[in-house]
Nucleic acid binder design. Sequence first.
RNA 1: GCCGCAUUCGUCUAGUGGCCUAGGACACCGCCCUCUCAAGGCGGAGAUCGAGGGUUCGAAUCCCUCAUGCGGUACCA
Length: 493
Amino acid sequence: MTQSVRVRFAPSPTGFFHLGGARTALFDWLFARHHGGKFILRIEDTDRGRYHPDALPDLLGSLRWLGLQWDEGPDVGGSYGPYFQSDRAPLYQEHAERLIEEGKAYRCYCSPERLAAMREEQRATGRKPGYDGHCRELSQAQVAEYEASGIRPVVRLAVPKEGQTIFEDRLRGRIAVDNTELDDLVLLKSDGFPTYHLAVVVDDHLMEISHVLRGDEWLSSAPAHVLLYQAFGWPMPELVHLPVILDPSGKGKLSKRKVRGPGEVERLTFIHEFRAAGYLPEAMVNFLALVGWAYDAEREYFTRDELVQLFDLDRVSRSPSAFSYEKLDHMNAVYIRGLGDNDLATRIQQVLLGAGLDADFLTVLQFAPLVKERMRTLSDCIDMLGFAFSDSLDYEASLLIPKKSDEQGALAILMRTSEAVGQVEPFSHGAIEDTMRALSDSLGLKPRDMLGAVRVAITGRTVSPPLFESMEILGRERVQARIAGAIERLAKG
RNA sequence: GCCGCAUUCGUCUAGUGGCCUAGGACACCGCCCUCUCAAGGCGGAGAUCGAGGGUUCGAAUCCCUCAUGCGGUACCA
């Protein structure tokens, strides 16, 4: 029988969608697309305590932004629904009930307090912590007594006390764990909701999931899941535990939000933050694909289609990898440089407008090629082009004075520039450049020294897009006005 | 503590017994180009392949031990 590939991404809506989730979702998506299978989105909202109302919209928006469209799940439906676990509660209860009837699970009436005390004692006496089986073999009378007292029980899996649980991980090979290391884990909580373990197994089976790709942090609980599959008599999906993403230092897991000491930069971790910071989704996808996967020794730039075509579990790494923000920045810059002027201008205009700048498309389009190779993220354009959309520049008068010169020198430069600007014909960057160079010559200055002053006068900054082109785009009048403003500032200053 | 997983330049990685005196990329340094900043070009530094034992004519690649890191050890996912 040819089994079709069905993979699912199953986040829980407890917080914003972050890097780790995005990488897992991307691998799920790539794997599904590569094999012509289905990519399913399932929401694991069984923890009512940690539920976060903003999480779902954030997740869906981020997935769409990255271009990871799901074939089944929220908004799109599908024939294996519902896709929210909270809507599937009866299913889990039925299945738990079935295991109880078959003697493979049992009700447990222990209070959280008793369990905590038990664990504390086990730790204190150096034994391994785990449920002691107190309720595993209760008599009829004891059960009746507990039931009468109104305690709402949980359901636990009766883990075999002997033997080993053996399974195969696609990346790590055969893994064997002694059953004595496994706990009688809770399947159904006292509120009637399933734990992750029950829900994931029931749903993956019912949804006919063929491959389970998930973070390495789940590897430890995989044996328990295997036991559950065995208890139900179901075939195992293929298990693939992906390496975790580490902090850039290479030490420690990349936390969703790490509070750092003074002087240390707080890192972006949520996908919506990357979006807001001006990263291109295509760059994010390319970069994320490389976190835990590599094609060969040389190549690291891939289009989405190439990724789909080339992605292969055999080339997924087993060891955790640090997330390099510097390399992401570099890749993002490369992607920006690869954008057409029109495309770039469209994206930049949105950023500029979002920053409250009155940016018209035509001007933005003219500036696009000038800033293209200077930007690392789209939001860099706010700093770079702010001067073009506001006539009130803010800078220190002292910046107008070239090194090895003085106020008089600066004044001379500005006056002569003003004259020259008034006469250049046409007002094009080529002509402007010619006259400005001639001017620096006649002033006995090096172009770099003189142009520094003019740059500040025109842009309010010591660093800017190419000067002559910028002047051309601004136009003669605005340039004149700015030079006049600079002269005035110098006189006051 | 116990269990599991991992371990190649600072970082991401290539490498599956000889092609490796270990290749590429980011970051870093120098030079060139240059109106600033970038981009680009050229060059450089940077890894005794975690350590120690084996196996083999030959090991980053296979085996064992140790160390370190990470993960798990919840009525969280």
